[in-house]
Write a protein that binds this DNA or RNA. Structure first.
Lengths: 99, 99
DNA sequence: CTCCTACATCGACCGACGTCAATCTATCCC
DNA sequence: GGGATAGATTGACGTCGGTCGATGTAGGAG
């Protein structure tokens, strides 16, 4: 992925990157991501995310969807519960763009 | 600044970080920043930014203001023209948060 | 099958955002 | 001063995004 400092900067790259950064551009989502990234291996149950961020369950679900569609996290169903894990490659991708 | 993966994640930190990432969450601003960051030393004249991004002059001015208020760039007047330079420390700050 | 729980989706509200035309401000040149 | 140019600001418009209550869906327990 082309870094921000690159002279050549395609519109496609910009859109893809912007999508990722936009997902990080909300305090609640940043908080959610920090909670999820704190458990990279086993992941985190959604039931443990609602209370810490102080938002309603639908709102949390909405933000998780944004993070999912931005490729920053992945979800997995374990019985009744949904578990979320971070996608470190995507984080590295965005980090690499900030050079 | 606390990384995303940190357990302790203050609301203030989250807001400050989100502000920065939100500024990066738009293709036009990402494009502008890439053009500005391509000349870290002398900076770039606004007159050389309008045409490449394909937006009106007021729109470009608006996006530059967002980047400025997010701390990602600084502006300086040189006679009739305004020159913008990147703030690498701020970029590093955001990059460091993505760990 | 029925009830309960966990999570997603829907609908609505409202404020924020991207965009441009028009205008204002400041600087330069004559 | 007067005119020209660069850039910021304003105002308006349409869209997007965050939020919640209500509802839908799927799995577990009995």
């Amino acid at each position: 992925m082309a870094p921000v400092g690159s002279v050549a900067f395609g519109a496609d790259d910009a859109t893809a990157l912007a999508r990722g950064f936009a997902a990080l551009g909300d305090p609640v989502r940043l908080h959610l991501l920090s909670l999820i990234a704190a458990h990279p291996d086993d992941g985190v149950c959604v039931c443990d995310l609602v209370e810490p961020v102080g938002r309603s369950q639908p709102t949390v679900s909405h933000h998780l969807k944004v993070l999912r569609e931005a490729g920053l996290v992945v979800s997995e169903r374990r019985g009744t519960w949904a578990w979320y894990r971070p996608v470190p490659e995507r984080l590295a991708e965005l980090r690499a763009a900030l050079r």
